[in-house]
Amino acid sequence: MTEKFRAFWLEESEGKVTGSIKEIGTEDLPQGEVLIRVRYSDVNYKDGLASIKEGRVVREYPFVPGIDLAGEVIASEDSRFAAGDQVLCTGYGLGVSHFGGYSEQARVPADWLIKLPQGLSAREAMILGTAGFTAGMSVEAILRAGITPDSGPVLVTGASGGVGSVAVAILAKLGFEVTASSGKEQEWELLKKLGAARTVSREEAQAPSKGPLGKGTWAAIVDPVGGAGTGERLKTIAYRGVLALSGLTGGGDFGTSVHPFILRGVTLAGIDSVQCPVPLRLDVWKKLAGEWKPDAVFEQAVHELTLEQLPDALSRILKGQAVGRQLVKVSEA
Rank of each mutant, 00 (worst) to 15 (best):
Y45P: 02
V323F: 02
I21E: 11
F5C: 06
I114M: 14
A172T: 13
Y45V: 07
I127H: 06
V225G: 13
L213H: 07
G55Y: 05
I52H: 07
G211Q: 13
V242W: 00
S181H: 09
I221G: 05
R233C: 14
E72N: 11
P208E: 14
G227V: 09
P30T: 15
G324F: 00
Q118G: 12
V166L: 05
R264M: 06
Y45F: 15
G195Y: 02
S79Y: 02
A244R: 03
I317V: 15
M1F: 00
L282G: 00
A159K: 12
G251R: 07
K192D: 01
A180P: 06
Y61M: 10
P208K: 13
I114G: 12
A228W: 09
Q118E: 15
W218D: 13
R264W: 04
A169I: 11
K46S: 03
S103V: 11
C89R: 12
F5T: 08
S331N: 01
E203L: 09
E189C: 02
G214N: 11
F81M: 12
S97F: 12
G32N: 12
V17H: 03
A289Q: 05
I74W: 03
D28L: 00
S20K: 11
A244I: 09
P277H: 03
T134E: 10
S246V: 01
L35E: 15
L327A: 01
E3Y: 00
D47Y: 04
K192G: 02
V43N: 10
G136I: 05
P30M: 14
L327I: 02
A269T: 07
G15S: 04
F63L: 12
V168A: 05
V278L: 14
E140F: 13
W285K: 03
A110Q: 11
R59D: 15
A110W: 03
F63Y: 09
